[in-house]
Design a protein around this nucleic acid. Structure first.
Lengths: 220, 220
DNA sequence: GACATTTTTGACGCGTTGTTGACGCGGCCG
DNA sequence: CGGCCGCGTCAACAACGCGTCAAAAATGTC
């Protein structure tokens, strides 16, 4: 579920966005001014920020700069001002997109999909397992460890959904193919190899956990 | 230097973009229709595509889909149509931004900076391999070494993403073409030649590494 | 047209990886 | 208390992928 922080001070826009975004499966948080935006962003950790420039307390570029100081979260700016000076200032301050009011809701949604698409698929490209750091994006592991292609595929499916239980059928289907959905011996074999290579104590795994009868789970 | 592919069929827009982009240090290539765009993109490997939707031969979304089939290069769409349907269609097809004509040049440039900022945090045109210094920009190598065109292309793809694993399919597709994606013998052949020419000890490469079953990686 | 360079194609040895079968252990249930 | 199922482990074999050598075909150059 994508987490969206909406920063705006106009009640009707807030209302419209909250209803429509929630209806489309987004998790929505609201901030009424720039100071609240920075505060909420630090705690809510949004996947996307929709920022109205006409805030009462701060300049829009200040808010953008304040966010960019510590996060690379995508920012879509809403603004009534259509002048190119404002657009350039906001974009160069670190915004990812600039939509002028009045805007079509479906256009805003499409732009939200476009900017999150770039960020989302990789999710968290880097995770920690035992003493090793695994980077999905570059397929690199700290230390002198090498994974085979199947080991990578298996690990990737588990790490992509941290904390979530993945059923054996699911893993077998996605890594080996539709016709292998009952060959659980493959899973036992390769989970053991992953633990030997990554876990500190392979006999007592702390991150690559078994859920007996169900499947496996990656615990960050 | 950022490489931009401009896809448009209106001479005055082409002219304006070419002059202004080159003046700002971009490397510009032009394609006059959709088919040419796909062809040029495959060889030029742009860092950014500026795509006009009013092409004579193909629908804009087709061009986007054709590019998205094998590359994640940022795409900024130019269009005379301001309807939200067109915008949503282009964005959901894989475009990163949508600018309606007439557009301000400074706005387009700001949007180009915004989308490339996400992709290219590092672009080192010069790297060290073994005892040699390789300069991508001028295609020069220190010492008495000369590379053939294919060797350059292959090396360039690896060096462009330092530390990242590049799959064999990716390399074969980008260097030889879409229909060679399984001819891994080419890769074996040319990686060996690159190592012979660049690595200190070709039998034990330290920068041009093999990831068995997956692909190759350039380690700075 | 002759030559050198580059690309393409084929084949082989060897190490690694994927696959398969078997065994022991522990928990769950009757 | 005893049997059964699922999980972890080990060992063995087959299959594949990589590096390498060699040579033919294509390309460019004079």
């Amino acid at each position: 579920m994508t987490r969206v922080l909406v920063v705006d001070d106009e009640p009707q826009i807030i209302r419209a966005l909250r209803i429509n975004l929630k209806a489309r499966g987004y998790e929505v948080e609201i901030a009424g001014d720039g100071a609240a935006a920075l505060h909420v962003a630090a705690h809510f950790h949004p996947d996307l920020v929709v920022l109205d420039l006409g805030l009462p307390d701060m300049e829009g570029t200040e808010v953008i700069a304040g966010l960019r100081g510590w996060t690379t979260v995508p920012i879509i700016v809403l603004s009534g001002r259509a002048g190119s000076t404002d657009k350039v200032a906001a974009l160069d301050a670190g915004a990812d997109d600039y939509v002028t009011k009045p805007f079509g809701l479906d256009e805003l949604l499409a732009r939200m999909r476009a900017v999150t698409r770039r960020i989302q698929p990789s999710g968290l490209p880097s995770v920690e397992i035992g003493a090793h750091t695994v980077d999905l994006a570059t397929r690199a592991i700290s230390g002198d460890v090498r994974l085979t292609p199947t080991e990578w595929q298996l690990l990737e499916h588990l790490v992509r959904h941290p904390g979530k239980l993945i059923t054996q059928r699911e893993l077998l289907h996605d890594v080996w193919g539709p016709q292998y959905q009952t060959e659980t011996n493959y899973l036992r074999q390769y989970m053991a190899r992953l633990r030997r290579k990554l876990e500190h104590d392979p006999a007592r795994p702390r991150h690559l956990l078994t859920e007996p009868g169900m499947g496996y789970r990656f615990q960050p």
